[in-house]
Amino acid sequence: MGTNGTPRVGVLTGSRPAGLGDTGPVTVGAQQRDSDAADGSPPLEAAGLDRLRAAVSAALDEFLDRQSDVLAAMDATLVPLVDEVRALAAGGKRLRPAFAYWGWRGARGAHGEDEAAVLRAVAALEFVHASALVHDDVMDGAQTRRGRPATHIGFATRHDASRLEGDGRLFGTGAAILVGDLALVWSDELLRRSGISAAALGRARGVWDTMRTEVTAGQYLDLLHAAGGLPGPDGALTVARYKSAGYTVQRPLQLGVALAGGGPEMLEACTAIGLPLGEAFQLRDDVLGVFGDPEVTGKSADDDLREGKQTLLVALTEQAADAGGRALLGDVLGRATAGPDEFDALRRLMESTGARAAVEERITERTALARSAIAAAPLAADARAALDALAVAATSRSA
C-alpha cells in the first residue's frame, strides 16, 4: 500500500502495471541507472555530439540567414518569423540528427555521400522538431519553452506591446501556428537543398514522408487522448509512440540508413532499436515535466500538471489511486488556478501509488531492450558504440 492507503502499481522485478503488455523481467529504474556507470557502456564522447551539434547548428544558421533575406525582401515585418524559428532551433540536444547521422555511418557501403551534405540533411530534423514543439505548445496552452516564452505567448506579447488591434491572444495563437507551419515547410527545403545526391534523396523520401505523417497524426491522437479518447495506460503509450517515439529515434535512424543505401535488415534493426528507445525517451520527458528541476529543464515543474497532460504517469496514478486520490487528480490536474501546494499533493500521489516508480521501471526495461537491439544490429562497430552511448544519455538525462 502507498503511504496514503492507496494501492500501489507493481514496481518489483518481474511485475508490470496492468495494461502495459508483456515486458518480461525488469529491474527497478534507480537500480539499473546505478549499474549503467559500471556496465562497460561507451562514454557519451563515442557519439561525437560536440562535433555533430556544431555542424547541425552551422547548417541551420546558414539556411536561416538565407530565409531571413528572402522574407525581408518580401516585407521587413516578416523577419520576426525567422527569428522565432531560429530561437526554437537554437535549443535542444540535437539527438534526432545524431541518431540519423549514426544510422548513416553505421550503414555506409557502396553508396558514398559527402559527410557535410549528410549533416545538412539530418539537420532538417530540427525543423520538424521545432514545428512539433510550437504546435504542441499551442494545443497544450503552455507558457514557456526552453526557458523563454512559448511562441504563442511571445507573439501575443508582441501584439500588445505594438498596440495592434484585435485580440492579442488570438494573434499569438495564429502566429504560432504559422511559425510551426513555416518550420515544417523549411524542413523539406533544407533536406532537398542539403547537397545529398538525387539517389540518396529518393531513398530517404519514403522514411521522411512517413515520419512527418506520423508526428502530425500523433498530435491529433494526443488531442483525442486529452479529451477522453484512447483511455488508460495503453492510450498514453499509443500517443507516445506516434507523437514522439517514432520521430525521435526510429525514423531518424531509418533516415540515415536510407541515405546510406542500407537494406531491409538494417531498417528492421532501426525499428527494434528505435521504438523502445523512443518510448523510454518520451517517458523520461514526462517524468521530468513533473519532477524535473526548473533550473535545468527550462520550464516550471507545474506546467504539465497545470496543462493537464495525459501521460502514462497520470494514467497509472489514476489506475492505482483510491477514491480520494482520484478526486484529487480530477480536481487539480488541468486546473489553471491550482497552486503549488496542490501540485505538490499530486506529485506525492504519483509517488505513493507507485506510478512514478512504475514509469521508471518501464524506462529501464525499454532502454535495456533497445540496447540489446543495438548490440545485435548489423551496423558498423563505431555506430553501435555511439548509439549505445546515446541510448543511455537520452534516457537518464535531467533536462
Results as ranks from 00 to 15, higher is better:
A321Q: 00
G246L: 12
D285I: 08
A336R: 14
E268I: 01
G298Y: 06
E307A: 13
A376D: 15
E342D: 14
E365W: 03
R366M: 12
I363H: 12
T364H: 11
A301P: 05
T337G: 04
T337D: 15
L333V: 14
A376R: 15
Y247T: 12
C270H: 09
S300K: 00
A280D: 11
S300L: 10
E295A: 15
L369P: 00
V332Y: 03
E318C: 04
S372P: 02
D322G: 15
K243M: 10
A327G: 06
F343P: 02
E279C: 01
A272Q: 07
A327K: 13
G263P: 05
R306P: 01
S352N: 12
E342H: 07
F291W: 14
D304V: 00
L253G: 09
A336Y: 01
A375M: 08
G263M: 05
R366F: 08
A336N: 05
K309C: 13
G298T: 09
R348H: 13
R251F: 14
A321G: 05
V257C: 12
A269W: 06
A321D: 00
E351L: 05
V359H: 10
G324K: 07
G308V: 00
E342T: 02
E365G: 11
A272V: 00
V359F: 11
V290Y: 03
A338G: 12
A280I: 02
L277T: 04
K309W: 08
T367L: 07
L346M: 12
A368S: 14
D303G: 05
R371D: 13
G292N: 05
R347P: 14
D302K: 02
A373T: 11
I363P: 10
K243C: 07
A338V: 04
L349M: 11
E307R: 09
R356Q: 10
Q310Y: 02
G289R: 08
Q254E: 15
K299W: 04
A269G: 06
P294Q: 10
S372W: 06
R284C: 02
T271Y: 06
G324F: 10
M350W: 06
E279F: 03
R251S: 13
F281I: 10
I273Q: 06
A338T: 01
V314L: 15
G308Y: 02
A345Y: 08
R362H: 10
A260K: 09
A336F: 01
D303R: 01
A375R: 15
A376E: 15
G324L: 06
L277G: 11
A315V: 11
L305C: 02
L283E: 07
A370M: 07
K299F: 03
I374N: 08
E295D: 15
Q282P: 08
A376Y: 14
Y247P: 02
V287N: 03
M266F: 04
V290D: 06
T271N: 05
K243Y: 10
T317F: 03
V249N: 07
A327N: 04
L267P: 01
V296I: 15
D293N: 14
A280S: 13
T311I: 04
A370P: 03
L275V: 15
E361W: 06
D331I: 00
